[in-house]
Design a protein around this nucleic acid. Structure first.
Lengths: 160, 160
DNA sequence: CGACGATAGTTGATGCGTAAAGTAAAAACA
DNA sequence: TGTTTTTACTTTACGCATCAACTATCGTCG
């Protein structure tokens, strides 16, 4: 391997320090491109990727959830969630409701409008997944997932 | 495979729609965790990941570059570069200089301080790559890169 | 020359990620 | 009972991504 595809893409003159570095940059670059594609799709429906994610989580759960439960299911930091929910509430896709027993907790619930928005997006989202990853065969997809999970295995959730 | 690791991580109740979706989510999640780690490292030195990236590109090139050339080498949009360079300039890590022949072009050049900052980061960055990906063997790393490049192969740079 | 479009970069608005600090309520403890 | 700690969230401040719209310069063509 004299010149990898990534090296050419980045117009990089020197080869990579290590296979680890190459894989890591490949990962980031591929992810960015995926994010861009899905971001465009969601934007056509007035959503950002994060907003879609919140809605999807709420539907997956099938019931209202406290803010922190949502944060846990996302790759996100707490403070960002407040504004995120604010905007979803303004679009009337979710509602906020304070828990009566424990008044610190605020439940977030999907509205019918939110559910409808998700429904509309289901087919295009599936199609985009297919389009962007469908040219890998089943074995390759499984291997990709396995390797990515193995990478994450070295990163405990709560280190430091 | 009854429950994948990813599915458990996300506390997802239903299985994935498809292998494509699973791989895609794995990719995004792994990337986020990598980004977080490197972000923390860079922040200790007063840099964001994007800022580090700009410096690294300039060093790799070995000479000053127009803004747009830097944008091309990053996964980025033009307008963001302006502010990015502003901040690097304020930290005295790069300098801006207008080209005399074509006054539309603005060259960005690494300062000695910028070069020094990069140098300090070299060892920790390499070590972090090693730490986060070093538990995959050479064959796995190559296969991971191959699969990620194959994913990108379906995404032309300038579609739509 | 003068109008035209293309190129290089900037500005402004909106949304999100991150850290640090703050508030309010519940739980733990003395 | 009162105090402290923890928990759940909010606020603020900063940096970056994105889009739309704008400025300045260059090349070209009539």
């Amino acid at each position: 391997m004299t010149h990898s595809r990534l090296q050419k893409e980045l117009k990089k003159k020197s080869p990579f320090d290590s296979l680890e570095q190459e894989a890591s940059l490949n990962l980031m670059r591929t992810n960015d491109q995926l994010q861009n594609r899905f971001g465009r799709l969601f934007r056509e429906h007035g959503l950002t990727p994060s907003q879609y994610n919140v809605l999807r989580i709420l539907r997956g759960e099938g019931k209202r959830l406290p803010c922190l439960e949502i944060v846990e299911r996302m790759v996100q930091v707490v403070p960002a969630m407040t504004g995120l929910i604010d905007r979803l509430e303004k679009q009337e896709l979710v509602t906020r409701e304070r828990c009566t027993e424990d008044r610190r907790i605020i439940y977030v619930e999907l509205t019918p409008k939110g559910l409808q928005t998700l429904k509309v997006l289901d087919a295009p989202v599936k199609a985009l997944h297919q389009k962007l990853l469908g040219h890998l065969n089943q074995v390759e997809l499984k291997e990709l997932s396995r390797l990515l999970e193995k990478v994450r295995a070295s990163m405990p959730r709560s280190e430091e």
